[in-house]
Design a protein around this nucleic acid. Structure first.
Lengths: 238, 238
DNA sequence: TCGATCCTAATGGTTTAACCATTATAATTA
DNA sequence: TAATTATAATGGTTAAACCATTAGGATCGA
């Protein structure tokens, strides 16, 4: 209900004030805070204290600080970067294993596919089929184009997430991929047969979405991710 | 693939070094960093620079700083707090609406229930049934015990999340609840009839888990959350 | 005139030294 | 023995100076 009121720290008050100004829209993304030397006078704190506050705001992803003339603190358009970073820390601290993350992803992608099946518009179906054509190309070219295939695979999943029109899913897609990629760069080494299996998966998922068969889409997407997870887990380093 | 190498900043190097020491296990939760005045000498930086680094580490959730004699920077056991905070920011910045978050929760709780159905041990079933008895009590006492009922409801969901043995789900439970609660404290105002409906939901979910019927558990959990979401969305303030 | 080079000033990054505020512990006193 | 007070360790804050980076203007050469 309540959180600790460690409020005797001046820099925290500075953080809160600036954050409030940004979140309330008085300063929009791209606009700048006054230079440190002016701001410290306005807020009647020392430059050191102000800078501690700026460090926190920077780390929160609310501002970005540039050097030189015309530099200074620019208000940032907030992204999921901080969520990703925190998750990455949890993984490194071994509060989460990649197996857990992979299992989570399995559920999420299933849900995304099923929502996409309910919500896909004709345009979306076209886009998905275009991606399939690309995927087919790479899957037939064999191992040398493995990375390209994986990129297209990612794009299919991203497109499905976008079709849900729920930004939580879009962001989660990035979060999960960022964190899986970070530790498993090129973890995949699929044989040509496996590339083709994956291509088939994608085709079936898209077909289910096209048919608005949400249960089928969910089950197929989960199976598809499960296959990926197997490649991954068989290489897990723990 | 690569991230910007803004590495001319000394405090960043301090952050990286200390973080590495903590994550590598050389300093464990509960242990302390040297006092600022010693650490600054060891790392050959000024106290101001060191303090900027400590601010960042504190905000990352890696250390906690206490005042007074015997105070200083204590290594923290890392939690999901930072993830929650970042998500809360995204919500306030209106990158995510509560409707989106609620929809996401619906999917997650469904998945949790279905995994729980596959993994519940006899002990778990006992625990769930105990909670149901408590829930029944409050649901019969009517509106005055609405908050108590909601607490038990939360506990049921938390227990289901724990049964999955996947910490991602446990943490997500907290994240979602923290963020929903923050903006909808007491958002619920259920009539007695609604309390009883919710109690029935819980009973059915637990029964499905007991029967290891994962599809049924999933569908029931989703319907249950959907009901909650209706109470919430009908009060949404946007 | 154009382009290259250099200079200037704005702005963040860092240092130093001092002092303030909080608090656990030891010393003192009733 | 218990309450009170003093001490010192430790983080929090301030001030003033200097360093490093950089955009843009000034200068100079062709």
């Amino acid at each position: 209900m309540f959180r600790a009121a460690k409020q005797n720290r001046i820099f925290q008050d500075v953080v809160d004030q600036v954050q409030e100004i940004i979140l309330s829209g008085k300063l929009k993304a791209g606009e700048m805070l006054p230079p440190e030397r002016e701001l410290k006078d306005m807020m009647q704190v020392s430059r050191g204290t102000l800078r501690e506050a700026l460090r926190v705001l920077e780390h929160k992803g609310l501002i970005e600080i540039k050097l030189g003339v015309g530099g200074g603190a620019v208000v940032k358009d907030i992204t999921f970067d901080q969520v990703n970073e925190s998750l990455a820390l949890l993984i490194r601290y071994q509060k989460i294993s990649l197996r857990h993350l992979a299992e989570f992803r399995e559920g999420v992608e299933g849900r995304i596919a099923s929502l996409a099946a309910e919500r896909a518009k004709p345009d979306d179906i076209v886009k998905l089929n275009d991606l399939l054509i690309e995927a087919k190309k790479y899957s037939e070219k064999g191992n040398d184009f493995q990375n390209e295939f994986i990129e297209v695979d990612k794009k299919v999943h991203l497109t499905l997430a976008e079709i849900t029109e729920n930004p939580v899913y879009v962001s989660l897609h990035h979060t999960v991929h960022d964190n899986i990629d970070r530790y498993y760069e090129n973890f995949l080494n699929m044989k040509e047969r496996e590339l083709k299996e994956n291509y088939q998966d994608l085709c079936e998922i898209v077909k289910a979405v096209e048919n608005k068969d949400s249960d089928e889409a969910r089950d197929l997407a989960r199976k598809h991710i499960l296959r990926f997870n197997h490649y991954m887990v068989r290489r897990e380093v723990n």
